[in-house]
Design a protein around this nucleic acid. Structure first.
Length: 552
RNA sequence: GCACCCGUAGCUCAACUGGAUAGAGCAUCUGACUACGAAUCAGAAGGCUAGGGGUUCGAAUCCCUUCGGGUGCACCA
C-alpha cells in the first residue's frame, strides 16, 4: 500500500519544485474518515518552502497523477494532511498480487547479501536455564527469524565460557555432593554461610549421583584428577541439559563460540596490543587499564587485573572486534539482560577506537521477568537452589505459550509473566486466539474438501467488497511492512501485536461473510482471501517460533 | 550519590518512532450458535498518558524538573 503510493507522492513533490525530496512518511489514520493512508509531507515542507501547509498540500495534490479507478479520493484535511482513499478495485489487485507469492508472503530481500550475527542465551555451563534466560532466548531467536525473513544471512550464536573459577567451583560443588552421597552423616557439603562459592541446585546432586553410579567410591580423594573429572562431567551435563531446553523451545544455534578460544588464538593479547598502540592502555597499581576517559566516557577501567587475569571487559572487546573485523559480519546483534547494561558503552568505545564501525553493532536490552500467579509473585531465586527453571515453565505451559509470552511485550518493559493466564487453556490466552484463527481456516478448507467443493486458484478478487473483506485485505497487505519494520527496530513484539490484529480481522470476516454455500465466484474469491490469511498467520507464527496448528 | 530502563483504563500492555477524537486483551455489564469450529463475534462502561514546566502548526512520544518502581555502578561474569 505504502510502496504503491510513495513514488506518486515523490513525483508530485518534485513537480512543485522541491529538489531535495524528503522521506515521505505515510501512515494509516486512526479515524476511518481520514482515508486509508495519510501523508504529512505538506506540513514538513511548509517550513522550508515558507508557505502555508494547506497551500503546499493543495499544490502537491494538484500535481498528483493517480489512477482514479484505484485511488478515487484524495483530500486535504486538518493542518495539511493529504488523505488518500483506495477503491475496492485497488485492494482486489493488491490481494491478487499477494496471493501470487504463495507461501512466501512476508519474505523480503532487504537484507540480501548482508551477514548478520545474532548472539543470545549465552549462559555459561554451570547450571540450568532460568526464566530470564527464556526471555533472552525467545527474543533472540525471534529477532534472528525476523532477520532471516528480511533476507539477511543469519548466524545464530551462543557465546559461552567454560574456563575460569566458576568452573572449578562447579567441579568442587559436584565433588562435595558426591562425598555426601558416600557418607551423608559427615556433612561434607558446607552451608551457604560457610562457603558461598558453591552451586547449590538440585542438579548438582543428580550429577554427583551419576558419578557415583559409574565410579563407585573411586573418586573420594579430591585430587586434581578427580576434580577435573567432576568439572568436566558437570560441564557436559549442563551443556546437554541447556541444549535440550533450547530444543524444546524450538531453538537451534549455528555456532557455539567459546570465550576460551579468544585466549588460545591470541586474540585477546592482540587486542590489548592494538589498543596499546593507539595510546589508550596504561599500567597502574600493577594492573592494566583502559583509558575510556580518552574515548568520551568518564571512568577508566581495569582490563587486566594485577593477578594477571583479564576482566570480563577485555574478552568482550576482543569478541566484538573478532566478529566485525575477522569474521566480517555486517550486522552484529547482542541480546542482553538489563544487568549487562553498564559494559556496553565501554565495549562500543573500544571497538570504535580499534577502527571498527560501531553502528554495525545493535544491542537489544531486555528488562527482567517477574512471574506472577493470582496476583502474587512466584519465586525464582537462584540462591535457594529451588529456582523456577525455564524447563519448569515449558513443562507447564508448552513451548508455544512460553515463547509467545516472552515476546508479546516490548523488550524494554519489565515483563510480568502471568502464570495464571498462561496456564489458561481458554479464550483468555492470547496465543490460542492466533492459533485458532489459523486452525479455523484449515477447518474451512477441510470441510470444503469433504463436501467435494473445489478450491479454484484463479479467483476473481474484485468480488471482495464487503467492509469486513476490505478490512481483512488491508490488514494482510500490511504483513510485509510489519516484517520490514521489525527488521529495522528489532522489536519482536510488533509481530505479535500484528498477528493479533490479523487474527481479529479474520474472525470478523468469518462472522460476517460466509464462504461455503455462497455463489461459486464469490465463494472462490473468499477462499482466496482465507488462504492468504492462512499463509500470513502461519508465516507470522513461524517467525515467532510458534506452531500453526491445523486443528486444536 | 551517578548512569540506564519504566510509569498510559481496575489489571497486563499497544499506539506504525512527533500527527488528527490515545487503542487492545483480561476483569465488569448487554446481546449473538438450526449454515464453514462460540478457543469466536457485536455492544456498553472505563483516561487530566504519575505531577509540573518547556520546544512547535501538533507531544504519551523530544528537553528540563519533581515523585514513585526496576537494574547497574569492583582489580566478579
Amino acid at each position: 500500500m505504502k510502496n504503491y503510493l510513495k513514488p506518486f507522492l515523490e513525483a508530485a513533490v518534485r513537480a512543485i519544485g522541491v529538489e531535495d525530496v524528503p522521506e515521505i512518511a505515510l501512515e494509516i489514520p486512526r479515524q476511518a474518515e481520514h482515508g486509508d493512508l495519510s501523508a504529512n509531507v505538506a506540513m514538513t515542507l511548509a517550513k522550508t518552502l515558507k508557505k502555508n501547509p494547506r497551500q503546499v498540500a493543495q499544490d502537491i495534490v494538484a500535481a498528483l497523477r493517480l489512477d482514479a479507478t484505484l485511488v478515487p479520493k484524495v483530500e486535504i484535511a486538518g493542518a495539511g494532511f493529504i488523505n488518500v482513499t483506495f477503491s475496492p478495485m485497488f485492494y482486489a489487485v493488491q490481494v491478487a498480487e499477494l496471493l501470487k507469492q504463495g507461501q512466501n508472503i512476508g519474505r523480503l530481500e532487504i537484507g540480501k547479501g548482508v551477514k548478520a550475527n545474532v548472539e543470545y542465551v549465552s549462559a555459561n555451563p554451570t547450571g540450568l536455564l532460568h526464566v530470564g534466560h527464556g526471555r533472552n532466548a525467545a527474543i533472540g531467536d525471534t529477532i534472528a527469524n525476523i532477520l532471516v525473513w528480511n533476507g539477511y544471512d543469519v548466524t545464530r550464536e551462543y557465546y559461552f565460557n567454560n574456563a575460569g573459577n566458576q568452573m572449578n567451583n562447579l567441579g568442587k560443588s559436584v565433588h562435595k555432593r558426591y562425598l555426601e552421597l558416600l557418607n551423608p552423616s559427615a556433612n561434607p557439603f558446607p552451608t551457604a554461610e560457610e562457603d558461598d562459592s558453591l552451586y547449590r541446585g538440585e542438579y548438582i546432586r543428580e550429577i554427583a549421583a551419576a558419578l557415583q553410579k559409574q565410579h563407585g567410591e573411586a573418586l573420594a580423594e579430591p585430587t586434581e584428577k578427580t576434580l577435573t573429572l567432576c568439572r568436566k562431567t558437570a560441564e557436559q551435563w549442563c551443556f546437554e541439559t541447556i541444549g535440550k531446553t533450547m530444543e524444546r523451545m524450538n531453538i537451534r544455534h549455528d555456532e557455539f563460540f567459546n570465550e576460551d578460544s579468544l585466549y588460545t588464538d591470541g586474540k585477546v593479547k592482540a587486542t590489548v596490543e592494538d589498543l596499546r598502540s593507539r595510546g589508550v592502555v596504561y599500567e597502574k597499581d600493577g594492573a592494566t587499564w583502559l583509558a575510556l576517559s580518552k574515548m568520551g566516557l568518564t571512568d577508566d577501567r581495569v582490563i587486566i587485573k594485577s593477578s594477571g587475569e583479564p576482566t570480563y571487559r577485555l574478552p568482550d572487546i576482543a569478541y566484538h572486534y573478532d566478529k566485525l573485523h575477522n569474521r566480517k559480519f555486517d550486522l552484529v546483534v547482542d541480546i542482553f539482560g538489563a544487568d549487562h547494561i553498564a559494559t556496553i558503552p565501554d565495549v562500543m568505545a573500544a571497538v570504535a577506537t580499534l577502527g571498527e564501525d560501531k553502528s554495525k553493532v545493535r544491542v537489544v536490552i531486555h528488562q527482567f521477568v517477574t512471574l506472577t500467579k493470582d496476583g502474587e509473585a512466584v519465586k525464582m531465586s537462584k540462591r535457594t537452589g529451588r529456582a523456577y527453571t525455564l524447563d519448569d515453565l515449558i513443562e507447564e505451559l508448552g513451548a508455544d505459550v512460553t515463547r509467545f509470552f516472552f515476546v508479546m511485550r516490548g523488550v524494554s518493559t519489565h515483563l510480568d509473566f502471568d502464570l495464571g493466564l498462561a496456564e489458561e487453556q481458554s479464550e483468555k490466552n492470547p496465543v490460542f486466539y492466533l492459533q485458532y484463527a489459523h486452525a479455523r481456516i484449515c477447518s474451512i478448507l477441510r470441510t470444503a474438501e469433504e463436501r467435494g467443493v473445489k478450491v479454484d486458484a484463479a479467483a476473481d478478487t474484485a468480488l471482495l467488497v464487503h467492509s469486513a473483506e476490505i478490512e481483512l485485505i488491508k490488514t494482510l497487505l500490511r504483513f510485509p511492512e510489519v516484517v520490514a519494520k521489525a527488521g529495522e527496530t528489532l522489536e519482536p513484539q510488533t509481530i505479535a501485536e500484528y498477528l493479533r490484529e490479523a487474527a481479529a480481522a479474520f474472525h470478523k470476516f468469518y462472522h460476517e461473510c460466509r464462504i461455503l454455500g455462497e455463489a461459486e465466484a464469490l465463494m472462490q474469491a473468499r477462499f482466496a482471501l482465507a488462504r492468504t490469511a492462512q499463509i500470513v498467520m502461519k508465516n507470522g507464527l513461524t517467525i515467532l517460533g510458534i506452531t500453526a496448528p491445523e486443528q486444536m
